[in-house]
Design a protein around this nucleic acid. Structure first.
Lengths: 132, 132
DNA sequence: CGGCATCCGTTCCGATACTG
DNA sequence: CAGTATCGGAACGGATGCCG
């Protein structure tokens, strides 16, 4: 498993607003995936920033072992989560939000708040749209 | 084209932090897709909230006609964008960010700012991780 | 101009089985 | 306990062609 970013020749290399759209695209690809945000939020809110693998497996319900592993690996790669292995039997591995990871919580909360505030309106709009 | 949400029996029906994880999941699925955010940001920043189809097609470079159509249709369905057809020849269609759509810009900017501020660190973490 | 329909390769991800 | 390996269905998305 080596690759993780793929610039793809079809990606726009220019500016949509003013910032680096590649970076924005990459971030969105990450946080937009099926589990990353939930793992980060669960780690922060349920586990107070630190938890072991099995703990997350229980509290991010619905996630498969496979996807939890992959998600944590990606978060670790991005420096958002740290991984500590305790050489015991049975093995114990703990994951913790890094400072960088914690710094993501603020903008994330902004999004979550927006959902909380505006989800009703979105659902209404969808209902109206679908009824036509 | 009827469906657009699919609850999926495997979705967690519980709380990861404290809010409705289904709504958060649905939003993330939306904004995490390949184009939505870029269309919204381009509409806001390049076109001052209003543009026609061809305008967006040029300024969200790399996007295919198909995906622009689908993306705009979804945004319209969610009430984030309005669509106005001018019965001319050749036809003209204009899209505009709704109030709801504009309200999303704030949390979105929060994310974009985070990327701007922390992308270097993320790249470094990735480089460090990959070198092992 | 602004779509929609179709085809088709790529990617995602859940299920399952296996390991130290 | 904390993974890894493999498989197969489903979803994504680009290219192309057609149409009012």
């Amino acid at each position: 498993m080596k690759k993780a970013n793929k610039p793809k020749q079809s990606d726009p290399a220019y500016i949509c607003g003013s910032e680096d759209p590649i970076a924005v695209r990459e971030l969105l690809t990450k946080i937009g995936d099926k589990w990353s945000i939930f793992v980060v939020l669960t780690l922060a809110r349920v586990h107070n920033n630190r938890a072991r693998f099995s703990g997350l497996d229980k509290t991010v319900p619905g996630i498969s072992q496979r996807m939890l592993t992959l998600t944590l690996r990606n978060l670790e790669r991005d420096g958002l989560v740290s991984r500590e292995v305790f050489p015991e039997i049975p093995p114990r591995v703990e994951y913790e939000l890094t400072t960088l990871g914690k710094s993501l919580l603020q903008p994330l909360d902004g999004l979550v708040d927006w959902v909380t505030d505006n989800w009703e309106d979105v659902k209404k709009a969808q209902a109206g749209f679908d009824s036509k």
